[in-house]
Design a protein around this nucleic acid. Structure first.
Lengths: 245, 245
DNA sequence: AGTTGCATCTCGAGC
DNA sequence: GCTCGAGGTGCAACT
């Protein structure tokens, strides 16, 4: 049985040894561990980074993820992805937290000069996020009412594979011409045009049917440059957004 | 003057009112505020999401960022970017934390059934991250020793603008032919080929000099599909990684 | 404020 | 495990 005191363990201004004990136990018991204090951070792996002394918030997740947050930005200043092994030790009087993995080999080391706060939380979370307004929702909107692309458009397949990748919607128009539709949930730039162009090009080679092939980019809007590229490549644009709800 | 007690304020199993006071004061004083407890999360803005009851860690940063973390994943399950206005209130006995912004209009609401922990940390962090192994480092490596691309390659400009965007390195080869170099710090797929192709294409139109134009993708490696696309487009590949240090 | 492309992108799906 | 593309991508640089 878990009482509130068991579920959450916290320490204010702990000694390095006391903090290490809490973190160690937290890692072992699958808790979500947080630390706040003055620290340095070193990372080596896909890239290499160093960060001098400053106050940061460190989170160690039971799935192996590690996050180091400063007072600014949505993104952690340093991190380690899920699947890592966390460990903690005291070295030369400093609390040292490490998180490492292989494939690729990479390691994160946080060295605390001082720890202002340490906590371990037992987490129970069975809920899944329900998200709407995605590209998948836009696809459903079109499959429900293909005329939104153009009158008499007929979807034949989704995620149809081509030598260049999977086409969002593959179908044909009123005149029986093959249509490749690329969907984007938001305003698009040149990259999306390049993507559609790759698919159309690949399918043209596959079908030996270049003249009868159309490519349509469906998105809320396009940038100027994207519009120019569409024109250059002979591709089309239809303005459509994901459903509100 | 700031004592350790001033710098860090924490509450265990606080009442909603006590937690609200701490959060309110933390927001006002520019502290980094964290909460842990059972909550629901609702977001509406660029998309829409709901998340049922579960134990999560919430961080409110003084720059206006908000993060909601579950026990899994490197990414927050919900968030709000920097620049938002945080607010807190007690409604029907629940602690409710809100974070909102305009342009685009979006709002995050976290409703706590129970709060296990609340904390406010005063943050001092003057250090900047030093990162190496980036695309910029790869570019420097080539500018230092252009022969790494090919013997007698001569860089003429970086970030040269074309109608399709900026070229990483623009130069010429031994025979005076124009060379467009696209850099990637890691293994690349079809998207990078499309990008290089766009630049070469745009520059060809600009220079009216199609035959003498070469495109070289410089990266550690390429996927099979990317290699096929390179061949189709008449583009080249040179294997090179960012420097180790 | 809008555009463009990088990122230790992360994440999920498919293979 | 790798590949590929979406993402409420975030983020900086530039216009």
């Amino acid at each position: 049985m878990t009482t509130p005191d068991d579920a959450t363990r916290t320490l204010a201004d702990p000694t390095p040894d006391a903090a290490a004990d809490l973190v160690e136990r937290g890692i072992e018991t699958g808790a979500l561990v947080t630390l706040f204090g003055r620290c340095r951070v070193d990372y080596d792996g896909r890239a290499t980074s160093t960060l001098g002394s400053g106050d940061r918030h460190v989170m160690l997740k039971p799935d192996g993820a590690a996050l180091v947050h400063t007072d600014e930005g949505q993104q952690p200043v340093n991190w380690q992805p899920p699947g890592c092994e966390h460990s903690v030790r005291v070295a030369e009087g400093d609390l040292v937290v490490e998180s490492e993995r292989s494939t690729p080999e990479e390691e994160l080391v946080v060295t605390f000069e001082s720890v202002a706060h340490a906590a371990a939380f037992d987490v129970t979370d069975a809920s899944d996020l329900s998200l709407s307004g995605t590209e998948a929702d836009l696809r459903e909107r079109i499959l429900d009412d293909p005329d939104l692309v153009e009158p008499s458009f007929t979807p034949l397949a989704t995620e149809r594979t081509t030598p260049a990748g999977a086409v969002d919607i593959y179908g044909e128009d009123d005149d029986g011409r093959t249509v490749v539709v690329e969907l984007k949930r938001r305003r698009v730039g040149p990259d999306a045009v390049g993507q559609l162009d790759r698919y159309v090009d690949a399918l043209a080679r596959d079908l030996h049917d270049d003249a009868e092939l159309r490519g349509i980019l469906v998105a809320p809007s396009v940038t100027d440059r994207a519009r120019e590229l569409l024109a250059q490549k002979g591709l089309e644009f239809v303005s459509l957004s994901p459903p509100e709800a």
